[in-house]
Amino acid sequence: MIDDAQLERWFCDEVLPLEASLTRYLRRNWRASEQIMDIRQDIYEAALTGGRQGLPGNTAGFVFTIARNILINRSKRERIVQFEQFADMESVEQAVDLSATDRHLDARDALRRAQEGIERLPPRCREVVRLRKIEGLSTREAAARMGVGIDTIERQLVLGIRAMTDAMLGGSGKIQRRAAAGTSKVRRR
């Protein structure tokens, strides 16, 4: 049995760097784009469940095999006509190859992702992230600085954490809930 600290280190060092190629693989093989996040979440949960019994030697092969099985089970459940899609092991191999490059991101790539991620944030969210990450302000201090309520800052930070994580892992960095970013100018002090 693998303990949590080991499991987390493996998950962060070996599994998460595959996220960009894993997401590409899912998008190629699954038509309903709004389900991709749920599927990916299922894959991560299954990977942790398996990893807890013993860490695999080939993490990429392990993760993409889980992905393929989950897609097959889902498509059976939804009775969708998608012939031959998953039988195509070649595409799995390709995805695994691609992942090798993802794993060796250099510092410049990470910086580029950070830059693109922050530029895609809505202005208010970007300012909150900047105050937190660059000036190191606490939620309370950021609220005072921007003249808004603490809950507004917290809401923007939640959006910022989600979007920046997506960006740093090679995703589009898009925020799903635009509505929350628009709740502005409440409780000006």
Partner: peptide
């Protein structure tokens, strides 16, 4: 374990975002 996956993922990504 799904909660752990989500939490660890965000903690990792958010720490990586220190590069800003």
């Amino acid at each position: 374990l799904g909660h752990k996956a989500a939490f660890w993922r965000l903690r990792q990504g958010w720490a990586a975002a220190d590069r800003v």
